[in-house]
């Protein structure tokens, strides 16, 4: 059996920290805690966690700054804890390299699910063929099938789907997608993205008006999920 994954939990509310620590231990993880931005970076450096759960509002700085700093030397997935009203900060954190978010107050099951998905994605696959439900994306041959049927995609549509498929379940922000698919100068043109997402849904979704694969996260971005 592999050793338990190491999780760093960062929050300045002692009771939240305590509840998360107890539950995560109960779920089989090894847990470390920090209650300031400074302590978070120090703990991350010392413990080399496999994933970080990070509150956006810390007494000595924002979670976004911690995330940006962390990304310069660590690729451990980061899940931010945000609150209604923090939408701007949440998107900034995702753009700064966070992998996902949960909104306070959250049930522990939701957090555990997000954590498992993030940890799974972090494992290297190297597989050129990605299967998500009835959808298969062959990154090498640049071909896509839905239920065995070949689908014709334009180069931009394929690039968009390939990016989502390489990060199954992960929330990708508008600007991250635009920068990768269209180029760095397109970071703010999110209307392009909405149009291409609609076209892509018409080709891969059974019912494009009720998408099952390509899910919209309002105000944040998109993710490709197993239906």
């Amino acid at each position: 059996m592999s050793p338990p994954a190491r999780i760093l939990v960062v929050d300045d509310e002692p009771q939240i920290l305590r509840a998360l620590q107890t539950n995560l231990r109960g779920a089989g993880y090894e847990v470390f805690t920090a209650d300031t931005a400074k302590a978070a970076l120090a703990e991350a450096a010392a413990r080399q966690p496999d994933a970080v759960i990070l509150d956006l509002v810390l007494p000595d700085g924002s979670g976004t700054d911690v995330c940006r700093e962390l990304r310069t030397w660590s690729s451990a997935p980061v899940i931010v804890l945000s609150a209604v009203g923090d939408e701007g900060e949440k998107v900034a954190a995702l753009d700064a390299g966070a992998d996902d978010y949960v909104t306070k107050p959250f049930g522990i099951d939701e957090l555990l699910a997000r954590l498992r998905a993030s940890l799974r994605r972090a494992e290297p696959t190297g597989e050129p063929l990605i299967t998500i439900g009835d959808l298969t994306v062959d990154l090498e041959k640049r071909s896509v099938t839905v239920g065995g049927e070949r689908v014709q995609l334009t180069p931009h549509e394929f690039a968009l789907l390939a990016m989502l498929a390489r990060n199954p379940g992960k929330l990708l922000t508008h600007s991250a997608i635009l920068r990768e698919v269209w180029g760095p100068q397109y970071g703010r043109e999110s209307h392009y993205l909405h149009v291409y997402v609609s076209q892509l849904r018409r080709k891969i979704e059974p019912d494009p008006t009720r998408p099952r694969y390509l899910i919209t996260e309002p105000g944040a971005g998109y993710r490709l999920v197993v239906p």
């Binding site: 539950n23 779920a27 609150a83 107050p105």
Partner: peptide, 24 residues
């Protein structure tokens, strides 16, 4: 809303943990 949500978050995280049979 921030001050109300902090204790709510701790309560909900703790309660949902207690309710989850798969946690040891």
């Amino acid at each position: 809303s921030h001050d109300l949500r902090s204790p709510l978050t701790a309560i909900r995280a703790a309660a949902s943990g207690l309710a989850n049979p798969s946690l040891m």
